[in-house]
């Protein structure tokens, strides 16, 4: 290293040390940014956990039973392709087979299966809340697995119904949206057809009139 180079790197290192010297700061510890504050749910305390991602990724509700399904859901954050979705649906079927006597488990997985199929069909073009709903329902199933022994059937039913309502709202959002679009486009088509028919009829009537007039004028006049 030449003296010039050495001088540059020393000057740079010195400047960076000054800039990033954590021991001599006159400001407070980092706080959540404005955007974080505004987007965070009001009923949850800020920074109550070391990080936001832990709430969904680190707790892993459902433990070993849900491990495969949770891993596949995480990988959807990165990419939603046929391979991931097929694995996800296959894992659901495997779990359904294993827990075929547990009605609540089966019903929960049916919701996951339904959303999974929808996601497989539409991938990144699926409704923007799809992954969120899938995460919610899957976390719900995980909690049900975790609390299996401490919940009565009645409590499980209430818990399932709440989740099912959420699922139904989402389903309506999707089907309602597409139904509305179809209805609207049908209405537009009918209006267009009526308009075109009107124009064609009018033009035909004018043509007919013109032809009749021409024929009349072409006929020799009677003496």
């Amino acid at each position: 290293m030449t003296d010039k180079e050495d001088a540059l790197s020393t000057a740079l290192d010195q400047r960076l040390d000054d800039l990033f010297d954590e021991g001599n700061l006159d400001v407070e510890e980092p706080k959540p940014s404005v955007s974080e504050k505004s987007s965070a749910p009001k009923d949850k305390p800020q920074n109550s956990r070391p990080n936001n991602f832990k709430a969904t990724e680190s707790q892993q509700p459902g433990g070993e039973v849900m491990r495969g399904l949770n891993a596949l859901l995480l990988s959807m954050e990165w990419e939603i392709d046929d391979s991931v979705m097929s694995k996800y649906l296959a894992e659901i079927q495997r779990l359904q087979e294993l827990h075929k006597d547990d009605m609540f488990f089966i019903n929960f997985t049916k919701m996951l299966e339904s959303i999974g199929l929808y996601l497989k069909r539409h991938k990144v073009h699926a409704h923007q809340d799809t992954l969120k709903i899938l995460q919610e329902i899957q976390a719900g199933l995980g909690l049900l697995v975790d609390m299996q022994d401490s919940l009565s059937d009645k409590e499980k039913k209430i818990y399932f119904n709440q989740t099912y309502e959420r699922f139904q709202v989402f389903r309506k959002q999707i089907t309602g949206k597409s139904a509305d679009v179809t209805k609207a486009s049908l209405n537009k088509n009918t209006e267009l057809v009526t308009l075109i028919r009107g124009i064609v009829r009018k033009e035909l009537a004018m043509l007919r009139k013109e032809l009749l007039e021409e024929l009349r004028s072409a006929q020799p006049k009677q003496p």
């Binding site: 800039l19 990033f20 954590e22 700061l25 006159d26 400001v27 510890e29 980092p30 706080k31 940014s33 955007s35 987007s39 990080n51 991602f53 990724e57 954050e77 990165w78 923007q128 809340d129 969120k132």
Partner: peptide
């Protein structure tokens, strides 16, 4: 995704705000 890239910059922005003297621009989705 969700690896902590934004959190890195947010930490620097908050911690050394008085020295950086610039605003961090961020566009977030749901």
């Amino acid at each position: 995704g969700r690896g902590g890239k934004t959190t890195n910059l947010e930490y620097i922005n908050q911690k050394f705000k008085s020295r950086i003297k610039a605003e961090m621009v961020t566009v977030k989705t749901y």
